[in-house]
Design a protein around this nucleic acid. Structure first.
Lengths: 169, 169
DNA sequence: GCAAAGTGATTAACATGTTAAATTGTTGCG
DNA sequence: CGCAACAATTTAACATGTTAATCACTTTGC
């Protein structure tokens, strides 16, 4: 090791080892997964989010923007920018809903579908290799736990920013 | 025209249900966790990344920038910007290493420590509530699987962008 | 010693995350 | 009808993610 300076910041408050916090674990694991997919996406000039959108469109056909945001797990503003770009590249199309001109319907073009078909095999191969290395059983256990945790936290009321250190309202 | 409003885009390539892909699961779960922590951080004018840096510094004392980037799981450019900001707020300090003027050592200030002490109780309380709702055993099972997967993927060679559709080189 | 190669950190440039505000269109109601 | 409240989407503004380039400094080989 390099100069091991004393961990002179013995926090008075005992906090979980930072590197083992749940958000960090989830972040690191996700990155270790994405690291394998990014090169293939990049070879086709796609970012991870653009790929999510194309995948979602291929799976659901026509879909409204708000619903697409929910499915692809993107916030409205991000989605708005990305759709503008993908539309410019003719990978998706938009049309207004006659019944409500505020809404628009997004769909993937045949060019977009071709792109998916070009990327999917590599993507699936990587996923298969991951499954093989990690174990199909453990993978499905992991998925189950992730979903359970998500459900448990959804049911947990969101605390506001009040701390108790403040003087109160 | 609009590629018809066919019911679905029956992809020729069978891909895993998009919403169940591992990266999506990890992303959604992480977000469901962070959703509970963000209000408290925000109440103290801290972003998630700034908090990670302060936590890392509190845990490790003095540390070089590169090592801090590794521990806090941030890329150099992000870290560089955030450190500039945190230094401006007097939450951290930097000093050059005499032995190598390219490097600098970062440490948390007493003001930074006080901020941590102000946030930590709420943070720990939230974590405790999560553990209670999800179950300590399942939480530790999940952590173990996450680490195992991370390790398995670290050992997996990173494929480059070659697809087979390209002419290759 | 010194020029070339290497390393740590920052800057640049562009995409996305995130919250707030603006825009445009719809609806409900007097 | 006319207008206030509401809703879907986009724009704005700023922070971070991401890759490439740059800057400053160090090491290496001659």
């Amino acid at each position: 090791m390099t100069t091991a300076s004393k961990p002179r910041t013995a926090a008075k408050i005992p906090m979980r080892d930072f590197s083992q916090s749940l958000p960090m674990s989830l972040l690191r694991t996700r990155e270790s997964v994405m690291r394998h997919f990014r090169p293939s996406l990049r070879a086709h000039d796609l970012t991870e989010q653009q790929w999510r959108i194309l995948r979602a469109l291929a799976a659901s056909g026509e879909i409204e923007v708000t619903e697409l945001a929910r499915v692809a797990f993107l916030l409205g503003p991000s989605l708005s920018r990305i759709l503008r770009d993908l539309e410019g590249r003719r990978l998706i199309e938009r049309r207004l809903l006659k019944a409500d001109l505020r809404r628009s319907i997004v769909s993937i073009t045949s060019k977009g579908l071709k792109l998916i078909e070009a990327v999917a095999p590599t993507s699936e191969a990587i996923y298969a290799e991951m499954t093989k290395r990690f174990g199909a059983r453990k993978l499905s256990d992991l998925q189950a736990l992730l979903h359970e945790l998500e459900a448990a936290l959804l049911a947990m009321p969101a605390a506001d920013g009040a701390d108790g250190d403040d003087t109160g309202e």
